[in-house]
Simulated scan of single mutants.
Amino acid sequence: MPPNERPILVAVAHGSREPRALHTVLELLDRVRELRPGLDVRLGHIELNQPLLDDTLAGLAPAPHARDGAAVLVPLLLGRGYHIKYDLPQAAAAVPGADIRIAAPLGPHPLLVEALCSRLADAGWQPGDGTSRSTGVVLAAAGSRDPESAADARSTAAMLSERLGGVPVVAAYASAASPTVPAAVRALTARGRHRIAVASYFAAPGLFAARSAAATPWIAAAPLGAHPALARLLLQRYDEALTAPYAAQRRELASA
C-alpha cells in the first residue's frame, strides 16, 4: 500500500512543561517523515502541550486516498501503564465511526537499547567500561504504579546489561515506584560500583530526566530524544498495528 493511502500515524506524546520536550518530539517526527515519505504523521499530547490528543483525533482529515478517519495511535511511551491501557483506548473510542488502531508502547525493544547505548557513548561511556568491576548503570525511568510498567523497565535493563558486556544495570524510577534513582545509586555503590552512569530512559527532556541525571556520581546520558533508532521503532510499531492492533493482542493474551 503506498504511504499516502495508509492510515494516519498519530504519535502520542505525554506532554511536558519543559519547552525542549515539544521541540524534541517534533524533531523525532521529522525523522519519521524522512524515513517514510508521503505518510501523514501527526502529533497529539496526553496533557500539558498542544495539540492535545483529543483535538488531533477530532480533526482527523485523511491524506488523499486514505480511508475516512483511519489512524494508528503510536504512543511515545516506553512501557505499559495507565496511559496505554486506559487513556488511549478512551480517546480512540470517543471518535465515533473512525477506524483507529492503537500500537504497542515503544518498549521494551532492542532498538531502544541501541539508542540507550548511543546516548551513553555520547556522555563518555567507553567500550571497556562494561568489563570494569567498579562500573554500574542505573536505568532511570519515569515510573508507574502498574507492575507491568516496572516489568518492562526491568526487561530493558536486562537487555542493556547484556549489550554493555554484563555490567550491572538497575532499573529505577523518578516517581510512583521503587527503587528511586538515588536509592539505586546507593545500592550499586554498596556493591563496590563507584563509577555509576545514569541511562536516561525518557523520550524527551523534562523534570524527571533532569532530576535523575543529577543523581549520578559519574556520567548521565541524555534522553532518547530524536535518535534515529527511535524513529525506526516508531514506524515498526505503526506497521505492527496495521496487522494486529495492540488492544487486540492484549485481548488474545488475556484469553489464552
Rank of each mutant, 00 (worst) to 15 (best):
A61V: 15
A93G: 05
E5T: 14
P2Y: 10
P105I: 10
A98N: 01
L230D: 06
G15A: 02
R145M: 01
I84F: 00
R250V: 13
I84Q: 09
A115S: 14
Q236E: 15
A226P: 09
E252H: 14
P37M: 03
A254S: 07
E240N: 14
L26G: 01
A140K: 12
P108S: 13
I8G: 01
G206C: 09
V138E: 12
P89L: 04
D239M: 07
I8L: 12
Y82C: 00
V198L: 06
A153Q: 12
S255K: 08
A241T: 08
P64W: 03
H83Y: 08
L22G: 08
E162N: 09
D40F: 01
L73A: 03
L116S: 04
S132Q: 14
T156W: 05
A248E: 15
P105Y: 08
L53N: 10
R145K: 05
Q126T: 14
Y201L: 04
A71G: 04
V113T: 15
I196Y: 01
R42C: 05
A141P: 06
D54Q: 11
L188A: 09
S134P: 00
P75V: 07
E34F: 00
T56L: 04
L28E: 04
E18N: 15
S255I: 10
A244Q: 15
L77A: 02
A177N: 13
A220C: 06
Q90P: 00
V12S: 03
T135W: 10
R237S: 07
A158G: 06
T24E: 13
R119D: 07
A190C: 05
E148K: 02
V41P: 10
D122S: 04
R36V: 07
T216F: 05
W218N: 02
A140P: 09
S212P: 02
L73C: 05
A66Q: 14
A210M: 03
R154L: 02
D152S: 03
A187C: 03
P182I: 12
H227T: 06
A176P: 01
P110N: 12
S118Y: 04
R101P: 10
A176N: 08
V25A: 14
R17F: 02
L48G: 00
R145W: 02
E148F: 00
S16E: 03
G192E: 11
V167N: 07
Q249M: 10
R42H: 12
E148M: 04
G59D: 04
L52K: 11
